[in-house]
């Protein structure tokens, strides 16, 4: 209600200039309004829009040919493949975890729930560098399983499994965090009704719960994927930076940049920036759906 009322009294701007319209007492003078809009846009331009535009301009600075050469070069291709692989493994894993955690947390009342919620939030407050470090301590040569892994001729750190592990760590809250509030708001009535009517556990999940949360689920997956493909700090610690083997796209950008191949670095960066923009677009679309679903829940509750 309140939000629809706010936009109503903006009519005075359209009134003839001769009759000086009186400004409603709950609105700021026009100069304040314009000033604040200007300030906000200037701040966002300086810190957001200019960096975004720069990525694309710098990528094409030396021409379209240089741009595409940078992308199809062997090391770049292997970095793209590794990034897709790491995201391809960690996103489904975190999806399954997110659904399981949300089912337990939202549909049941159990001791230690808040502790589990805090643990799920933990990766957000741990520096990505530390996320990488802890896996080095466990799987590195001097780590807990270091000797055992060496004896069995397996490598986790400075190899692909370490990169996947680090990626899983930094991205594991995303799906759970989107699902839990929605599923908590939806409650258990529909599932209980299905149960009483004789549905099995999996039937309840596929036919009742999943359709109710599908947009939030997709939203979580989108955010999870964006972070998985763009993670730098954690992956940087465990990767070992072996060109063509353990370099993801963000790490490849770093190497190119440090070698002063700026156009190539920005070319690879533009792919990730494009992914970021697609993520924002999808996020915007899905967010509207989630809001609608949340409103549905609210309406039903009343």
């Amino acid at each position: 209600m309140t939000t629809t009322m706010t936009s109503a009294p903006t009519a005075p701007a359209a009134a003839p200039a001769a009759v000086r319209p009186r400004r409603p007492a709950t609105e700021e003078p026009a100069w304040v309004r314009r000033g604040l809009i200007g300030l906000a846009l200037a701040f966002l331009t300086l810190f957001l829009f200019v960096p975004l535009v720069t990525v694309f301009l710098e990528a094409f600075k030396k021409g379209v040919d240089v741009y595409f050469v940078a992308l199809v070069e062997a090391d770049a291709l292997s970095a793209i493949k590794l990034t897709l692989l790491a995201a391809g493994i960690s996103v489904p894993l975190n999806l399954v975890f997110g659904v399981a955690a949300a089912w337990a947390i939202a549909k049941f009342d159990f001791r230690g729930k808040n502790l589990l919620l805090t643990l799920i939030d933990l990766p957000f407050s741990v520096s990505p560098v530390i996320a990488g470090l802890i896996y080095v301590l466990v799987f590195g040569l001097q780590g807990w399983f270091g000797e055992w892994l060496r004896d069995h001729d397996m490598k986790v750190i400075f190899a692909v499994p370490g990169i996947v592990l680090a990626t899983v760590f930094v991205t594991f809250p995303f799906v759970a965090r989107e699902l839990i509030p929605l599923m908590q708001a939806q409650g258990v009535e529909q599932e209980e009704a299905a149960r009483v009517l004789g549905a099995s556990g999996w039937q309840i999940f596929w036919r009742v719960t999943l359709p109710n949360v599908k947009w939030a689920l997709l939203y979580g997956v989108i955010l999870c994927n964006a972070r998985a493909m763009g993670e730098f700090g954690a992956v940087s610690v465990v990767s070992g930076h072996i060109r063509g083997q353990t370099n993801t796209m963000p790490l490849h950008i770093e190497i190119l940049y440090n070698e002063y191949q700026f156009a190539a670095a920005f070319a690879v960066a533009s792919l990730l920036a494009g992914l970021g923009l697609v993520t924002l677009l999808l996020k915007y679309v899905v967010e509207q759906r989630v809001k609608a679903q949340m409103r549905d829940v609210g309406d039903r509750a009343e």
Binding site: P51, A226, I253, G276, L277
Partner: peptide, 11 residues
């Protein structure tokens, strides 16, 4: 949130 940190860094 959506732009990888390395990309933001070089930009």
């Amino acid at each position: 949130f959506a732009l990888p940190t390395a990309v933001a860094g070089i930009a």
